[in-house]
Write a protein that binds this DNA or RNA. Structure first.
Length: 320
DNA sequence: AACCCCGACAACCGCGGTTCT
DNA sequence: CAGAACCGCGGTTGTCGGGGT
């Protein structure tokens, strides 16, 4: 694989901002050729421009192209960028293909100057879209669980998009997500039972409406969340206490999951009293994480700027 | 009025990948 | 098949304008 010497190294090739005259020359030249540039390398000479081909290409693709949409990004575009970035990372060119009339450079700039900062203010890592560790976070939400786990921001966005949820409902959504991760991280049936009991306790204590949302998602069918949420007092009815205690002893595969389930219960309880304590570190379970992902309907995602969810977060939560 | 700081965005630079010879 | 030529991408820098002091 070779690499050509860059014509931009030529001492007499102009750099810096383009003038109107140069823009006009470039546009006319390309239009004269019916929009077919051919070789960018040869274009400057053919067009009579004292610029390097690369500079011409950039000027055309990022600014002069007739199909470029100018102006501010809409809320919908912003949502789309965030969602795509969560899945694609810094693949600006790929992201740009999903936003008509926007260039990769424009999106990249918008990300770095607007979205990235917003996410940081909310304590969300703009690279991983995960909650920043304490100390690196720019805020101290009392509802720590909102953004304590992988995909938390998107989850919150998705939840908000499904209705006018308050932050409490979003915290419940997060708790449920955690529960799913706990269940998914454990292969033992007895651990699952323990976690189901925990789920029941959690849902009872929070009076969650989240399961109703989940029931509508086809992707969740295999998990049958309705079973979780509609069965009252699951532990008492279905789980022999002895089995729970026997199978969740320290050292067993179920123990860690049971412990996490316990933490969930604690969180759910304190949650009900609006005093949410951070819970432990969770290992994301790919299977259930995958189940949750399809919930996001892109056009409905909330805006970081204008949606009520972000406004609902107490202002002092952002302060350092 | 002058200076400084900062945000926004255009433009540059270097590299990797693909195509051409 | 190797190397040159070229394109496109992503990170970074430069420039400019507005606001604050």
């Amino acid at each position: 694989m070779g690499r050509s010497p860059c014509c931009c190294r030529d001492a007499d090739v102009k750099k810096g901002p383009w003038t109107e005259e140069e823009d006009k020359t470039l546009v006319e030249h390309i239009q004269k050729r019916g929009g077919n540039v051919g070789s960018w390398r040869r274009l400057p000479k053919a067009a009579g421009l004292n610029r390097c081909g690369k500079s011409c290409r950039l000027r055309w693709t990022n600014y002069l192209r007739p199909d470029i949409k100018r102006g501010n990004f809409t809320d919908e575009e912003e949502r789309l960028i965030i969602t795509l970035h969560a899945g694609l990372g810094n693949k600006w060119a790929t992201i740009a293909t999903h936003l008509e009339g926007r260039t990769d450079n424009e999106i990249k700039n918008y990300w770095n100057t607007h979205i990235r900062k917003k996410l940081l203010r909310m304590g969300v890592d703009p690279v991983t879209h995960q909650q920043l560790p304490p100390g690196q976070s720019h805020h101290h939400l009392n509802a720590t669980s909102i953004a304590h786990h992988p995909g938390a921001l998107l989850w919150a966005s998705a939840a908000t998009s499904l209705g006018s949820l308050d932050t409490g409902a979003l915290m419940q959504a997060q708790l449920l997500q955690q529960l799913l991760q706990v269940i998914g991280s454990n292969n033992g049936a007895s651990g699952l039972i323990a976690n189901l009991a925990a789920a029941n306790a959690m849902l009872n204590s929070s009076g969650s409406m989240v399961p109703n949302l989940l029931q509508e998602q086809d992707q969740m069918n295999c998990l049958q969340p309705g079973y979780l949420c509609n069965t009252s007092n699951f532990a008492e009815q279905h789980v022999p206490q002895q089995q729970l205690t026997n199978d969740t002893s320290p050292g067993t595969s179920s123990f860690a999951a049971a412990k996490q389930a316990d933490q969930l219960c604690c969180t759910a309880t304190s949650f009900a009293s609006h005093d949410v304590a951070p819970v432990g570190n969770w290992s994301p379970a790919q299977e259930f994480g995958g189940l949750l992902e399809p919930m996001m309907e892109l056009p409905d995602l909330c805006s970081l700027e204008s949606d009520s969810f972000w406004k609902d977060i107490p202002e002092d939560s952002y302060r350092l």
